[in-house]
Design a protein around this nucleic acid. Structure first.
Lengths: 120, 120
DNA sequence: TACATAAATAACAATATGGTTATATGGTTT
DNA sequence: AAACCATATAACCATATTGTTATTTATGTA
């Protein structure tokens, strides 16, 4: 497995499936707004609810999705569960976008199979 | 609208909806692999088909999705349509992830409404 | 213990996504 | 013109997503 060093963080190259899963967790306006709010400070679900026009279970499911993708972490404080952003994970996914795997080999194989389109 | 300069590219802050739309276009393993292939060189649909285990219309729809998100551009050459990656768009979305809007104001309003959870 | 509050889960509905096969469209070649 | 090839679109299906309301679980308090 190829290992890169970036922003002082050790990041291993991720599979397309895994990158796609994390991007899916990011690819929702509500979840992007939740992440933006968590960048200001840690929040609990009951604080997030009045900011959005959706129900408490909906918010709960959104943060759960972010937690599965390891984009946020949770800490229980009494009856509240506070969520915090995992900046490293965000860096990782940004890194993955800029450093997608080199698939030159796949195109070389295509050429060997005579499937390349030569067009001028 | 706030304007940032980054990597020499002028980028305007995007709305959550728009960022989410582009991330949705990215959030699929097939489309990520297509983008990785296009980073090596421009390809037409008939070259991409044998690399994946899905039908020609499926590939066609994937590149169409990428085109709508402006992540790729198309150029017709005779009977072929060649797709090329739009690196700037990829930079923009990476930028957007690292520079999500500052929502301090939303949390200040929450506090003014007495909805902040004080917890020690 | 009983009750209140926070958060998660269950069950469900509407819509989006990602694949299929069949067909239409655009351009090339005979 | 007719046949051919590349690509796009249409119609369809299975599954995923994102919301809802009702209920359960966990914790704190009277």
């Amino acid at each position: 497995m190829v290992i890169w060093f970036w922003c002082g963080v050790i990041i291993t190259t991720m599979e397309f499936e895994k990158i796609a899963d994390i991007l899916k967790a990011l690819a929702d306006p509500t979840r992007l707004k939740i992440l933006s709010l968590l960048r200001v400070r840690d929040c609990c679900v009951c604080e997030l609810v009045p900011i959005f026009n959706i129900s408490q279970p909906a918010i709960s499911k959104h943060v759960s999705r972010l937690k599965t993708a390891e984009l946020v972490r949770e800490t229980r404080k009494g009856q509240w569960v506070f969520y915090s952003i995992n900046e490293k994970r965000l860096e990782e996914i940004g890194y993955a976008l800029f450093h997608l795997p080199d698939l030159s080999e796949d195109l070389r194989e295509l050429e060997q199979q005579g499937l390349t389109v030569i067009c001028e």
